[in-house]
């Protein structure tokens, strides 16, 4: 098991290098540091000296890949690629264009993101799996048919409308909770409840339908018939047998997103003014702050690879036949 984990982590290195090369190509080769400086400084203040100063301040003045002027190893290390991309492997993200330390920002903003993402994830999973089981219990009845129709309708609504509609109805018409904002601690509960509920509702349509198909696929198998033949009640069959056997396909989709919860949700955080990583990313995109976007891309892919590894490990928990080796 441990050997397997180490091997998988080792495989991750070429993938992360690939990710780095790709983002590096996107950000430095197509848009050279000169273009970036011109964009950041605005049209009025562009002088060759200003561009040069901007680049020196942010460390973009070195050659991209190969520094002929340096000696020895420095030929490779004193380059933009080494400084800006490879250093991320040591989790050194450098400074954003407005001069703040990105690593520090990420650490402080992780909390609010998780405060939204974790309850959303757990509640969403609970609600959608229960609804799906409920529909399967009443399969091939009018309730099931209309349930599926409802799911298709819910999944045809853009996430933007869920957020806008929810904010308008709950905060503006009913005045139940503040429309947006955030404080840490227990007091933050009233700020968190609306975004969490809205995110859960927005995920009901697609997820319920997906779990329903998973359960239906499982329910046509032989062991289910055997269980019924033993005289088990339909609910026991569903909860004790079908649910447990459907765990593998459920875990495949679910576990991989757990590490990504750190990244927060772009839309929800920006609509509700939550100072998490999602709104950080959106602000960076709007300000065209490439240093932050690059850091988030790197973190995102690390977390994704971690998620894949966790998925494999979780299989061994739910299915004793699976052995990692």
């Amino acid at each position: 098991m441990l050997a397997y984990i180490f091997r998988r982590l080792f495989y991750a290195i070429p993938i992360l290098i690939g990710v780095n090369l790709l983002t590096f190509a996107l950000f430095f080769v197509v848009n050279t540091p000169d273009d970036m400086a011109r964009m950041q400084l605005g049209v009025k203040r562009v002088t060759p000296e200003a561009i040069e100063r901007w680049k020196v301040e942010r460390g973009y003045d070195k050659p991209l890949f190969f520094n002929a002027a340096a000696m020895g190893v420095g030929q490779l290390t004193q380059t933009v690629f080494f400084d800006k991309s490879l250093r991320m492997f040591a989790l050194e993200f450098g400074r954003s264009d407005d001069g703040r330390d990105i690593g520090n920002e990420i650490r402080t903003r992780m909390g609010p993101s998780l405060a939204i993402a974790v309850p959303t994830f757990l509640l969403g999973l609970y609600v959608t799996v229960s609804l799906a089981l409920f529909l399967v219990l009443f399969r091939a009845t009018a309730l099931d048919v209309w349930g599926v129709v409802g799911c298709v309708m819910l999944m045809s609504i853009s996430g933007l409308f869920y957020i806008i509609g929810g904010q308008w109805l709950v905060s503006k018409v009913w005045h139940l909770v503040p429309i947006s904002g955030y404080t840490s601690g227990l007091d933050g509960f009233r700020f968190l409840i609306l975004p969490v509920v809205i995110s859960v509702v927005a995920s009901i349509g697609a997820n319920t339908r997906w779990y329903r198909t998973l359960f239906l696929e499982e329910i046509s198998k032989d062991y289910v018939r055997t269980a019924r033949a033993k005289g088990l009640s339909e609910t026991t069959v569903l909860f004790r047998h079908v649910l447990r056997n459907a765990m593998i396909p459920i875990l495949t989709g679910v576990v991989v997103v757990i590490p990504l919860l750190f990244m927060g949700s772009l839309l929800v955080e920006s609509f509700f003014g939550i100072p998490g990583l999602g709104s950080y990313t959106i602000d960076a995109i709007n300000a065209q702050d490439f240093a932050i976007v690059r850091a988030m891309v790197f973190i995102g892919s690390v977390l994704y690879i971690l998620g894949l590894l966790l998925t494999d490990i979780s299989y061994t928990w739910v299915d004793p036949r699976v052995r990692l080796g």
């Binding site: 993938i15 690939g18 990710v19 790709l22 983002t23 996107l26 950000f27 197509v30 848009n31 273009d35 964009m39 990504l260 990244m263 772009l266 990313t281 995109i285 065209q288 490439f290 976007v293 690059r294 988030m296 891309v297 995102g300 892919s301 994704y304 690879i305």
Partner: peptide
């Protein structure tokens, strides 16, 4: 490699580049 970059971020990176 492409899959492991969160979709929105990859799109954002590519779109920012294309806009420039």
């Amino acid at each position: 490699v492409l899959n492991s970059i969160p979709g929105v971020l990859l799109i954002a990176a590519a779109v920012l580049m294309m806009q420039g």
